[in-house]
């Protein structure tokens, strides 16, 4: 590529005029902590959302279990909800939901085929998510959480290796 084909542009910087520093309203460490606490205060809402997501992923699983052929469309349905669950859990202190969602997404993305073993593995992941919420396992779930996750990782590794 010749130099003439590269144009470098300094775009107008509107942020500079709008952003102040210090004073009331500035985002200091205390303000950040307050914002984190606002998220903690949303936990009840999160639990309502995730219960809805668990109903949706169960319904998506039922479609997957009843399907035949390559099951790709049905698996995509499971993936989308799992991806949402993965994206939200950790924000509200439910890191296990993010971790299990991550394992399920990894399985779906990397599995060569979608056979009975993969379908069964999906069910185990969904049941684990339900257990985390039913038992209110916050954070990484301690020893029980470690064991659940290790078991799921073992299943995934076996199916995608």
């Amino acid at each position: 590529m010749s130099d003439e084909k590269l144009e470098v542009i300094n775009p107008p910087n509107a942020l500079k005029q709008k952003v102040g520093t210090g004073g009331p309203g500035a985002v200091d460490l205390e303000a950040l902590e307050r914002a984190e606490q606002v998220i903690v205060g949303m936990t009840d809402s999160y639990l309502e959302w995730v219960i809805e997501d668990l109903k949706k992923i169960e319904a998506a699983y039922q479609k997957l279990a009843a399907a035949s052929g390559d099951r790709k469309e049905e698996m995509d349905g499971v993936f989308q909800i799992s991806h949402d669950i993965k994206g939200q859990g950790g924000s509200f202190g439910y890191d296990m939901m993010t971790a299990i969602g991550n394992e399920l997404c990894r399985l779906i993305e990397r599995a060569d085929k979608i056979g009975p073993d993969e379908v069964q593995a999906v069910k185990i992941h969904i049941d684990s998510m339900k257990l985390v919420i039913a038992d209110d396992m916050k954070g990484h779930g301690g020893k029980a959480g470690e064991e659940i996750l290790a078991g799921l990782q073992k299943i995934c590794d076996k199916l995608i290796s």
């Binding site: 942020l15 952003v19 102040g20 520093t21 309203g25 500035a26 985002v27 999160y46 949402d84 994206g87």
Partner: peptide
């Protein structure tokens, strides 16, 4: 971390997940 005041900034959030 600098203590920026960002109250005058306007944000658009695009996500198909209502909860996000």
């Amino acid at each position: 971390m600098a203590d920026y005041n960002i109250e005058k900034l306007k944000f658009l959030v695009i996500d198909d997940d209502q909860n996000m």
